[in-house]
C-alpha cells in the first residue's frame, strides 16, 4: 500500500549527529552563510523556548526538497501545504533531537516552537534573523551547523542552531 511504503525512513530511524561545527559570524555575514544569499531554499524556522533561547533552522536548497520528501509523501509531495507540513515536522524531529541532547547534557529545558516553513531566498531569511541580533546589540552571532545521519546516510538538510550569545556562555559555566 503506497502510504505504507511512504512510512519508511526518515520518521522511523533515530538520528545521529555526524558533524557539528561552531563558528562566530557578524550579522552582515549571516545572509551568505550557505554561499549565495539569493539561493532559494526551503527552510523551517523555530524559536527556542526555555533555558537556552535562540533559534533553529532546517535548510535545504529548494530543488532538492521534492526528492527529499518523496519517500515520505508519495504523490502528496506535490501538495505544497502537505510538503511544508512534512518538512516542518522533519525539522521538529531533528531540531528536538538536538535540543534534547543539549537539555539532558546540561540538565536544563529547551523546546522549539511549532515550525514556520518558508520557500525563499536564504539571504532574506538569514538577514531578517541577523536584524534581530543587531536589535539585541549582539555583533557576534554564534552559529552551530549540524549534519545528521540516519543509519550512516547523511541528511541533505542542514540544521543551524543560532543561540543568543548569553545562552551559550550560560551553558558553558
Amino acid at each position: 500500500m503506497q502510504a505504507g511504503e511512504a512510512l519508511s525512513g526518515l520518521f522511523e530511524r533515530k538520528f545521529k549527529i555526524a558533524e557539528i561545527a561552531l563558528s562566530h559570524r557578524t550579522p552582515a555575514e549571516l545572509p551568505e552563510i550557505l554561499g549565495d544569499a539569493a539561493e532559494p531554499v526551503c527552510a523551517s524556522f523555530y524559536q527556542i523556548r526555555g533555558e537556552i533561547p535562540g533559534f533553529l533552522l532546517l535548510i535545504m536548497p529548494i530543488d532538492e526538497v521534492n526528492a527529499f520528501l518523496k519517500p515520505l509523501l508519495g504523490d502528496h509531495v506535490t501538495e505544497e501545504a502537505m510538503a511544508d507540513s512534512a518538512f516542518g515536522e522533519v525539522g521538529n524531529v531533528v531540531g528536538s533531537a538536538f535540543l534534547n541532547y543539549l537539555a539532558d547534557y546540561y540538565r536544563t529545558y529547551a523546546a522549539p516552537t511549532p515550525p514556520q516553513v518558508f520557500r525563499d531566498m536564504v539571504g532574506a531569511l538569514m538577514g531578517s534573523l541577523a536584524a534581530v541580533f543587531v536589535a539585541e546589540g549582539q555583533e557576534q552571532v554564534p552559529v552551530v551547523r549540524t549534519v545528521f545521519t540516519q543509519e550512516s546516510e547523511k541528511l541533505s538538510a542542514l540544521l543551524l542552531w543560532i543561540p543568543y550569545a548569553l545562552s551559550l556562555s550560560e551553558l558553558r559555566k
Binding site: A3, G4, L7, H76, S85, A86, G88, P114
Partner: peptide, 15 residues
C-alpha cells in the same frame, strides 16, 4: 499540529 503527522498516524492506526 502537523497535517503530515496526523495523516501518518491515521494510516498506522486505521490499518
Amino acid at each position: 499540529d502537523a497535517a503530515f503527522m496526523r495523516m501518518r498516524l491515521k494510516t498506522v492506526l486505521g490499518e
